[in-house]
Design a protein around this nucleic acid. Structure first.
Lengths: 363, 363
DNA sequence: TTGTAAGCGTTATCAA
DNA sequence: TTGATAACGCTTACAA
């Protein structure tokens, strides 16, 4: 492997001149620049990144700490992160499966000297102290955090607003007996979505009732099982707001088995807008979460605080979560005036041909 | 930020001793080890990764170059890569959107000094030369490549076998008039799948006919549109093998609109087993591709060739692509004897509760 | 415009 | 068992 010394020798200049020539410094004559360039090409010189960042204290790399999520949401977040980073010619050092404070902290530690900043996704409340420590070493941006940290920017999902408008949609359609399939206790997103549901009800002068609040765990299985509970209660509600699409999918399957028709017998709204949502029968009305944008914004915030010296920035952006109206609530016309949008793309245009889709067999 | 010098000063030893103590060298007395540890803790010392890898020439990091894919497949590959890497305490430096040889080469170049090895996904045939260059700098593993490179391990998908068994399944069900919805010309996966389809036919003494080979581009839209073409031909085939699930999804939608019933009027098999496959009506029989495993194997191959010194390894693993029988071909009983498996998991168990699924709202 | 030399923060090789 | 000190490969004052 050729080093800068080899290039210097070949071009008959000092290593300093090679460095300057290759990095486009102004203080180099055109002639030597040529000579150095030629020598570097001839030797096929690849500068050593570690040496460079040791010297410059910059790595042009962003660290990313993720929980052990998978599926489309996660993939889209990464894509957003990576694209935004690439746009600014940053690379991304990714490490996932970080559940608790300790693993987050040790991963951050092991990235010291190799990243310029760090994006931490969905840290649990316990990690607040760890993050305080990390942000002394490099700028940190939190992705959908369960808490606020001063001196730290963050991007999160409009859980409350999304749930509020989903429930509002049902109310606008005339429903008054609206159940919710809530997420697990202790989960911050779940809590916010539940709060949005309740507030929307109260705003319509419907008192939330614990008899209509079913507790799931965000899995499809729990959505499926909850149907038994609901049915056992005797009187069916006229609508259900599921705190995520996975549970809605389970719910829909179980309803189909019991021949309970959607939306005639029961209207259903979900949250997340996962890919499957529009393939359910009927296509699921749900709250759209733009995972790609979530990642992209986090990177933009991080790079901006990288560039700004001075006190650490701490902007907290909230990503809008708009309602996407499909067919699972019926009477779609009524929804017109609301902030929702009707998803009426014809089937054949459902998937926009993606730049690379023709390049690989994968969907 | 405390450096090794600060720790040395605090512990009243030399920096060499600090390094030895912290890296668990045997040649350190228990007493000084304690003292150094205490000093490091007190100063909250984080070793600098760049300095360390400059000195050791090891980075404990794997580079990953990806095309601009997205969606579940891509996400699963990354998850497989990352998990396998983490298992061996490696981190992953990811860079996507690499379409052509030049971007692949320059990305690899910019990783020099910061990675120990590189996984390159789906490089196009043109990059063969670039990869020859890259593998002189660090070990390379190819993920589903369009070609073989000596001195380079690779993992690829059993495209031929998968297509062969999908078509074989249709033949076993008694179909003789089997069309295929092929992928784009020039795409290696598409070509292999087409070859598998043809071979299966020939093996059953059915001569492949170009009139039954329709050309799509792996998008849902193209699957949708092809139905018109097929119908225009007059006589409907009795079965279709779609070279990927996206096209199968489009196909199914278009057939539903024309009231052509699956599998009664037309049997359909796909390829990839994307998440949506089992939600189609009827659930799609398709060839399963384990994207997670694809990534994990690539990393294992890479790490193994990292550890082995000597000539570069060049194992080429092929990931099996088993047929998953659902309902889109009917008469499922006949398939018993074949190498396929019947997917009969009940709806409520479709999604295995995932370790973290209870920790985030995302599917 | 170019060269010399001092870092950057580690690890590794010697002696002691 | 420890300590000097020389790498590692690069950038960047400071001199020339």
């Amino acid at each position: 492997m050729a080093t800068i010394r080899d290039v210097a020798r070949a071009a008959e200049v000092s290593i300093a001149t090679v460095s300057r020539a290759l990095n486009g410094s102004a203080r180099v004559s055109e002639a030597t620049r040529q000579r150095v360039g030629a020598a570097a090409d001839a030797l096929d010189y690849w500068p050593n990144g570690a040496a460079r960042s040791l010297s410059t204290r910059r790595t042009h790399t962003l660290g990313v700490l993720l929980p052990d999520l998978h599926g489309e949401f996660f993939s889209e977040v990464i894509r957003g992160l990576d694209h935004a980073a690439r746009e600014q010619s940053f690379q991304t050092l990714i490490s996932s499966s970080h559940a608790d404070t300790d693993t987050v902290l040790s991963a951050a530690r092991s990235m010291q000297g190799r990243i310029d900043g760090l994006v931490i996704m969905s840290p649990d409340a316990g990690s607040a102290h760890g993050i305080d420590r990390i942000k002394q070493t490099f700028p940190v941006v939190l992705l959908n955090p369960r808490f606020d940290v001063t001196g730290c920017s963050a991007v999160s999902i409009a859980n409350f607003d999304g749930a509020y408008s989903a429930t509002g949609h049902l109310l606008a359609l005339g429903h008054r007996h609206i159940a919710t399939l809530a997420g697990p206790a202790g989960n911050a997103d779940a809590a916010e979505r539940l709060r949005g549901y309740r507030d929307a009800l109260r705003n319509a002068e419907v008192e939330p009732s614990s008899a209509l609040e079913f507790r799931g765990d965000f899995t499809e299985a729990s959505g499926y099982e909850i149907v038994e509970e609901i049915v056992r209660q005797g009187s069916l509600p006229s609508a259900v707001f599921a705190a995520n699409d996975s549970m809605a999918v389970g719910l829909v399957s179980a309803l189909a088995l019991r021949r309970i028709q959607i939306p005639r017998d029961l209207a259903v709204v979900g949250f997340d807008d996962i890919a499957i949502a529009r393939y359910l029968s009927p296509p699921l009305t749900t709250v759209h979460v733009d995972a790609y944008e979530l990642g992209a914004r986090a990177v933009r915030l991080l790079i901006s605080s990288l560039r700004s010296d001075g006190p650490p920035e701490s902007k907290h952006e909230v990503l809008p979560a708009p309602l996407v109206v499909r067919d699972s609530c019926g009477s779609r016309l009524i929804a017109r005036g609301s902030a929702s949008r009707r998803d009426s793309r014809p089937v054949r245009k459902r998937t926009r041909p993606h730049p690379n889709q023709a390049g690989g067999p994968q969907p």
